[in-house]
């Protein structure tokens, strides 16, 4: 119940300020722009959208998701409103959930606004809409994961800029680690065990299978537990900071 109140406040705050609009517009410009330019959407005829459209999402999210999540706790600590939240009768956990869901909703809106691309593929050809849907789920899970990381970082600092830089660095690492070209280069230099360890923290393996329309339990568990651990860490850091 209190989570819902927090959720509403955070969401209103996103849309009362230019932040959410700016980020959504940049996201749409980048994702659609890349699809039609480098993605060669018109020529390749990739109806499942795997390579032309979804391929770009992790690269965009690694930069933009932290911009949405950076204020969540950093601002609260800078302005001292955390002292209000800390003395209201609510658990830290319900505040964390409310804030996380609000930030995720901003991304849900952003992803929903890419609908023209679905209309286009359906108009031009006969795509597998099931695979497209699961591609969207994959995208949403990747960006939620990045949001969870950002939230964890923002609990550590009162400075939004520091939070942005650190979270982007972590997200970039996670995107690069599982990327084929990178792992191939790494494979030449390091042992297979190292490569496997590095790949396992990358997002691609789990993202790809969803892109192909495959719902594998292991991917959902991977995303779910990753986010859960980040949120748990956020709660632990917030309580540790007070004592």
């Amino acid at each position: 119940m209190t989570s819902l109140t927090i959720y509403k406040r955070e969401l209103t705050s996103y849309f009362a300020q230019p932040t959410a609009y700016a980020i959504i517009v940049i996201f749409l410009a980048l994702s659609l722009g890349l699809t039609f330019s480098f993605g060669n959407f018109m020529r390749v005829g990739d109806a499942s959208l795997e390579w032309t459209f979804f391929f770009w999402h992790p690269w965009i999210f690694m930069l933009l998701a932290p911009a949405v999540g950076m204020k969540l706790w950093a601002d609260e600590q800078r302005t001292g409103t955390i002292e209000l939240l800390g003395t209201f009768p609510l658990s830290t956990w319900s505040a964390i959930i409310g804030k996380f869901l609000a930030a995720a909703t901003v991304w849900l809106v952003a992803l929903a606004l890419t609908f023209p691309i679905i209309l286009t593929v359906n108009y031009l050809g006969d795509p597998d809409n099931g695979a497209i849907f699961s591609g969207y789920i994959g995208s949403f899970l990747v960006c939620s994961t990045f949001l969870a990381i950002t939230m964890l970082v923002s609990a550590c600092t009162r400075d939004q800029v520091v939070c942005l830089i650190v979270s982007v660095a972590v997200c970039v690492t996670m995107v690069l680690c599982g990327y084929d070209d990178f792992t191939r280069e790494l494979g030449k230099a390091a042992s297979p065990a190292v490569v496997e360890a590095v790949t396992s923290i990358g997002v691609w393996e789990h993202f790809r299978s969803l892109n192909r329309g495959l719902f594998r339990l292991q991917d959902l568990v991977w995303f779910g537990s990753f986010m859960f651990v980040c949120l748990l860490g956020t709660s632990a850091i917030l309580s540790a900071k007070r004592s």
Binding site: S13, T79, T81, L84, T87, P89
Partner: peptide
Amino acid sequence: GYLPESAPLYHDMTVIGFLKFCASIRG
């Protein structure tokens, strides 16, 4: 009821919006 020393507030809200938010959290 607690008034912190620095009187922290959510600056993106209106006075009435803020008070309604606090009242909701208080149940």
